[in-house]
């Protein structure tokens, strides 16, 4: 049990933050991390050292997130709070970015979250998501293009 706790302590922030970005709220994120650990425990026999334990754990976590997202059908359920306007009616850019990331297709979203927010290397992301590194790069490239369009072309200019 100590080994699991060490693993949890080492990756707590990254796991919670990844799940939060994928699922949109803290409660679902905590549930996902909890379920991911349970699945890790049940599947320890299948771990084959092709990757680090943390990579394996992230893969499980993201699969849990994908499952939850599918179950909800609607890809993300951001709490329907109004976008806070502050600083002389300037838009909250962070919240806009969160929403824009949430609107990305799920694999693209996962690639971008792991790359841009969690600061993981593309090689590691390819192992976590079990996709070729080229596909990861393509997803990140496409995500940046989409976010650029959302940000710099769709946000109302006069409010800035």
């Amino acid at each position: 049990m100590q080994a699991f706790e060490n693993l949890y302590r080492a990756y707590e922030q990254q796991l919670l933050s990844t799940a939060h970005r994928m699922l949109g709220n803290t409660q679902d994120a905590e549930d996902a991390v909890q379920l991911a650990f349970l699945k890790l425990y049940r599947n320890i026999g299948k771990f084959k050292f092709k990757s680090k334990i943390s990579t394996y754990l992230f893969r499980i976590l993201l699969n849990v997130c994908f499952d939850q997202m599918k179950k909800k059908k609607q890809k993300i359920t951001y709490q329907q709070q109004p976008v806070p306007m502050s600083y002389s009616e300037k838009p909250d850019l962070k919240l806009h970015l969160e929403k824009a990331i949430a609107a990305l297709p799920e694999k693209m979203q996962a690639c971008f979250v792991l790359f841009a927010i969690q600061d993981l290397k593309q090689e590691e992301i390819s192992q976590i998501l079990d996709m070729k590194i080229g596909t990861v790069k393509a997803h990140i490239f496409a995500a940046k293009a989409k976010l650029r369009a959302t940000f710099f072309e769709s946000l109302p200019g006069e409010t800035v």
Partner: peptide, 21 residues
């Protein structure tokens, strides 16, 4: 966008989560 995204890496707090796990 990447800089702004990095700023989303906020500290997540879940004090009871390990106990549940």
């Amino acid at each position: 966008i990447l800089d702004l995204a990095k700023s989303l890496q906020e500290k997540e707090k879940a004090p009871l989560l390990w106990a549940k796990i």
